[in-house]
Amino acid sequence: MWRSTIVLKVAMAISGLILVLYLLAHMYGNLKVFAGQEAFDGYSHHLRTMGEPLLPYAGALWIIRVVLLVAVILHIYCAVTLWRRMRLATAGGGGQRYESTKARRGNQRTYASFTMRWGGVVIALFVVYHLLHLTWNTISPGGASGSPYERVVNGFSIWWVVLSYTVALLAVGFHLRHGVWAALASLGANTSQRRRRHLNVLATVVALLITVGFLIPPFAILFGLVG
């Protein structure tokens, strides 16, 4: 039962929605870049002192990190398991298993639904790169710095950094366009044809909000509006 396709989908849905909530918070933080270096670095520091003295220094942040890590691992584990079942069920062909090439796009499926799996891989790779760059500062295009604000501004002043970030965000947008709808439906929220439309509108709104929200700071930096 716990390994049934439906339970796996529910686990994917819950972990995915946790990540969406995190993205919304993250986006809010990013937009602080417009408030200047002090505010941005202060916010960054606040994340570590949040919850004190009930929690130790960086305690809340670590809790968030652990939750995120578990969510990501669960999400990927379920995705890989379900992907393998899809491969087994369709002799590896998936939606392209017919000889006919006349309906490669199916009846009605969206581009977003096509790109869930490879889009997911792109996002995972980007997250690693993103952590190396802005969290751990292991790689530092534009120059390393102790100030998060400076790391951000230095990085996004370079066109190819912005470009790679944009590509990743578009992947996130598509992933959310289908993912948010699918997650809510898998959790039982799709109760009628009308609701199906509503949930799809909601998914589109969330996807657009997050994509645009994340893309505003880097482009603002690139065009010299910040820093």
Binding site: R3, S4, T5, I6, L8, K9, L82, R85, M86, L88, A89, T90, G95, G106, N107, Q108, R109, T110, S113, M116, H178, W181, A182, A185, S186, N190
Partner: peptide
């Protein structure tokens, strides 16, 4: 359903 080897639903709607 799972034992028969069918795949899972990803809510694509095809």
């Amino acid at each position: 359903h799972d034992a028969e080897g069918f795949g899972g639903c990803t809510q694509i709607g095809e």
